[in-house]
Design a protein around this nucleic acid. Structure first.
Length: 533
RNA sequence: GUCCCUAUCGUCUAGAGGCCUAGGACAUCAGGUUUUCAUCCUGGUAACCCGGGUUCGAAUCCCGGUGGGGAUGCCA
């Protein structure tokens, strides 16, 4: 059976990092299985869904190379299908309104009492629930309401679906049967609006059933039916609720595998009933754990860097982000980390996805990005940086050749493209020196005199002869003459001409700056920084 | 409250009962290369949440606890 997977985001604002991870895993899964990857826009929240958000989403997917098959399905267009499905459920007796006379009352889906032969329902044995002493039990077509005693002696009200209590008997404190639910009174209960109330109850005895399914990521999962409730499928304004719309669309699109966030695990137990009663094949599920922030909490909008756009803006490469994100909660099983897209597709097995949440580490992401940048040729790197800088209006009007040479000097020092912002001193003398660097490197006695002398000697060098090698020779000679330690002038010179203590080789740097610029920067420092140092 | 899920270095992970003296990567520390930084190379510190079982043998299986997350919406 060919695999049909889908990504079904709600287009509300920016694209969340956890969301795009789900998209990536779906895409990888579909591509690995040589199946289809469909895109469905769940735009039913009219208040929050905007065209702009949809465009942002499509752009993000395009940027990350997540191509989808076929046309996009827009959920709002499927309204008639959703409504027809609701109607079918109602016709078959699987749905009801709390107030049958009021069409404005929301339509509830009822988890069917007769479901023991469903492929995802199994018997879980005899069960008994002790009730708060002398409390009442209400039984109605929307389920059971009963009171239990909490650990601190507090009475808690519980409401669960009727299907949770097969062959229910309500016992009084003496153990006598007060009420028995069976085929004889079931139709009356389902047909009546008013609940049957049993006073002075002490315990509930019934056969427990549970919903179960196998999750490709989480393994065998189950949930007792007596912890589930009937749920609304059509709101009082007539619009379909997520559960119905989502399931209907998956049926319409022929989705065979649902890969999504594990916040949907609980929904799955409900959706199984919908697929079953709508006569559809039940899909295979895979629930991915969430991505969490540095505090170990799920990413929220307030975190910053919660959106794909943030990473793009900061100068992360799509391939690097893709690679990193594919490794968050998944691993090929060997020690490979930096992998090409094709390699990842080849190695991707959804069953190997992690079951617990993963924390996104921006430092490791940057390291990964640095690996991808290092793969680029100097020329490609320069071109990439250029277009990145241009978009930001950095270094406008800089000589292209100077820019290229700077880029090749700084290539191995660049992890993310925003690092490039610090290149300003190559192109302009308009920088603020780092006070710490100044203090550390320019306060030794005799330093300023030496720099002044160095400048004088540099000024005598022929224009075309001002190379890295020439600069190095000047420094060495001067150090020796003045009895200074070898390289003692390197850092002072660097601070004076770049304002910082770190960077590319200083000889190459001054060669790039040129004789005039180098000398004028030294002179400027002599006149304006010297006394502060 | 109830239900569901989850737990290996700081972080991402390898690990499918003996290949584990627990491997890799990022981070970190030390050393080497080097004019600083970065790159590159070498080495180090660093983890099986706790308690019971099962077994000749448990990071791996089972039970309990604890921590974390999720669900419990006329949000999706």
């Amino acid at each position: 059976m060919p695999v049909i997977a889908r990504f079904a985001p709600s287009p509300t604002g920016q694209v969340h990092i956890g969301n795009i991870r789900t998209a990536i895993f779906n895409w990888l899964f579909a591509r690995h299985e040589k199946g289809q990857f469909l895109l469905r826009i769940e735009d039913t929240d009219l208040e929050r869904s905007t065209r702009e958000a949809i465009d942002t989403l499509l752009e993000c997917m395009n940027w990350l190379g997540l191509d989808y098959d076929g046309d996009i399905m827009y959920q709002t267009k499927q309204l008639p299908v959703h409504l027809a499905a609701a109607e079918r459920l109602a016709q078959a007796g699987h749905a009801y309104r709390l107030d049958p006379g009021d069409a404005k009352s929301p339509l509830y889906f009822r988890i069917p009492y007769h479901c023991s032969d469903f492929p995802f329902v199994r018997d879980a044995g005899e069960a008994k629930i002790e009730l708060a002493a002398g409390s009442a039990v209400e039984i109605s077509r929307s389920g059971l309401v009963f009171r239990t005693l909490g650990a601190k002696g507090k009475v808690a009200e519980n409401q669960y679906c009727l299907a949770g209590f097969l062959d229910l008997t309500v016992l009084d404190p003496a153990g006598q049967v007060l009420f028995r639910l069976d085929e004889s009174n079931l139709p009356q209960i389902l047909g009546a609006v008013e609940p049957v109330t049993i006073q002075n109850a002490a315990a509930l005895c019934f056969r427990r059933r549970e919903v179960f399914y196998h999750d490709l990521v989480k393994g065998d999962l189950s949930k007792p039916l007596d912890s589930m409730r009937d749920f609304i499928v059509i709101r009082s304004d007539g619009s379909p609720v997520f559960h119905l719309a989502n399931v209907c669309d998956d049926i319409t699109q022929g989705v065979t595998h649902i890969v999504r966030g594990d916040d949907h695990v609980e929904n799955t137990y409900r959706h199984l009933f919908l697929f079953q009663l709508l006569g559809a094949q039940i899909p295979v599920y895979a629930h991915l754990p969430m991505i969490v922030n540095a505090q170990g909490k799920p990413y929220s909008k307030r975190d910053g860097d919660a959106f794909v756009g943030d990473y793009r803006e900061k100068g992360f490469l799509a391939e690097a982000l893709f690679n990193y994100l594919s490794l968050l909660g998944w691993s090929p099983g060997d020690n490979r980390e930096k992998m090409s897209r094709a390699e990842i597709v080849e190695a991707f097995h959804i069953e190997k996805a992690q079951r617990s949440p993963a924390q996104l580490d921006p430092v490791k992401l940057a390291s990964m990005n640095g690996l991808y940048l290092a793969d680029l040729s100097d020329a490609d790197f320069a071109a990439l940086v250029k277009s990145f800088a241009d978009r930001r209006g950095w270094f406008a009007g800089v000589d292209p050749d100077l820019f290229r040479r700077t880029a090749s000097l700084m290539h191995s020092r660049t992890k993310i493209l925003t690092d490039v912002e610090s290149w300003g001193y190559f192109f302009s003398a308009d920088f603020t020196p780092d006070p710490k660097a100044v203090r550390k490197n320019l306060s030794a006695p005799g330093i300023w005199e030496a720099l002044s002398e160095l400048r004088a000697r540099m000024e005598k060098v022929e224009d075309g002869a001002f190379t890295a090698g020439a600069a190095e020779a000047l420094l060495r000679a001067l150090e020796e003459e003045r009895g200074m330690k070898q390289f003692a002038l390197n850092q002072p010179l660097r601070v004076v001409v770049t304002g910082t203590a770190v960077g590319a080789g200083i000889y190459e740097t001054v060669e790039l700056l040129g004789r005039n610029e180098t000398c004028s920067r030294i002179l400027r420092a002599e006149t304006s920084w010297q006394h502060e140092a």
